[in-house]
Amino acid sequence: MMTNLFSIFDPSTNLFNLPLNWLSTFLGIFFIPYSFWMIPNRHYIIWNFTINKLHSEFKNLMGPNSFNGSTFIFISLFSFILFNNFLGLLPYIFTSTSHLTISLSITLSLWLSFMLYGWINNSQHMFIHMIPQGTPAILMPFMVIIETISNIIRPGTLAVRLSANMIAGHLLLTLLSSTSNSIPNYLIIILLITQILLLTLESAVAIIQSYVIAILSTLYSNEVN
């Protein structure tokens, strides 16, 4: 049972002997033509409003010293994670963000780019950031070790946070749905209502997790400037 349960997170699972799981990551390309419509639809209006709000918020977080257009990196990150999180709520679609192959690749590449830029261009600032202001001299070596460890584990914590939240909700939905064959008919309504509530919660988690990843990535990039 556990093998079948966790097979929904197995990227090698196929449909009609065709390994199409990872292709769900590229389904967002079909939404691009919305931006070329002469009269924008409701989906494009809402999405454009969301992007503008995110742009202003990320711009405030990054400060006046940020490069022009750098906020769109994190808007694209938010869009990619949000879309793949929502795709996993549809039946028979592989949740790519629940796999560390995707989440760790995204966070590790961002973290490496931030670290390389910071240590090459702002090495003095990076050294200063490792020791908080007002730290006693006797605690400075320990603070350097703690800050170094906390800095190194950042991509892992971001990736595990995203994958664990996606896996937990999907497992709960799968476990509850697997009990539908063994419960009385009068409890089916309760199970259905519970599934709808959990699906609503998972939709909120999909939005929150993509927003958290984008915000934390923005804050991490602000530390190297």
Rank of each mutant, 00 (worst) to 15 (best):
F80T: 06
I81F: 01
I81C: 03
F83L: 04
F83P: 11
F83K: 14
F86I: 12
F86L: 07
F86Q: 06
F86W: 06
L87S: 11
L87M: 10
G88K: 01
P91Y: 00
P91D: 01
Y92E: 11
Y92A: 11
Y92P: 03
F94Y: 05
T95C: 11
T95W: 09
S96T: 10
S96L: 12
T97V: 07
T97I: 08
S98H: 05
L100S: 06
T101L: 15
T101Y: 03
S103H: 04
L104S: 14
S105W: 02
S105E: 05
T107C: 07
L108T: 11
S109M: 08
S109C: 13
L110D: 02
W111A: 14
L112S: 09
S113N: 12
S113P: 10
S113R: 06
F114M: 11
G118L: 08
G118C: 12
W119Q: 15
I120D: 09
I120G: 01
I120S: 08
N121C: 11
N121W: 10
N121M: 13
N122G: 05
N122D: 08
N122M: 02
S123N: 12
H125W: 08
H125L: 15
M126N: 01
F127M: 09
I128D: 14
H129E: 10
I131E: 01
P132C: 13
Q133A: 14
Q133P: 05
G134D: 06
T135A: 07
P136G: 01
A137Q: 10
A137D: 10
A137H: 11
I138L: 14
I138V: 15
M140E: 13
M140S: 12
P141V: 02
F142P: 11
V144S: 01
V144A: 04
I146M: 04
I146N: 05
E147N: 13
E147F: 11
T148M: 04
S150V: 13
S150K: 04
N151I: 06
N151M: 12
I153M: 00
R154K: 15
R154F: 05
R154M: 11
P155N: 01
P155W: 00
T157C: 03
L158V: 04
L158Y: 01
A159P: 12
V160A: 10
V160F: 08
V160L: 08
L162G: 03
L162S: 04
S163W: 00
S163E: 00
S163F: 00
A164H: 10
A164N: 12
A164M: 10
N165L: 13
I167R: 02
I167K: 00
I167C: 00
I167P: 02
H170W: 04
H170A: 15
L171A: 09
L172N: 08
L172D: 14
L172A: 07
L172R: 03
L173M: 09
L173Q: 12
T174L: 06
L175Y: 07
L175T: 15
S177C: 06
S177Q: 11
S178F: 03
S180A: 15
S180L: 14
N181E: 12
N181P: 15
S182A: 15
I183C: 04
P184M: 05
P184I: 13
N185G: 06
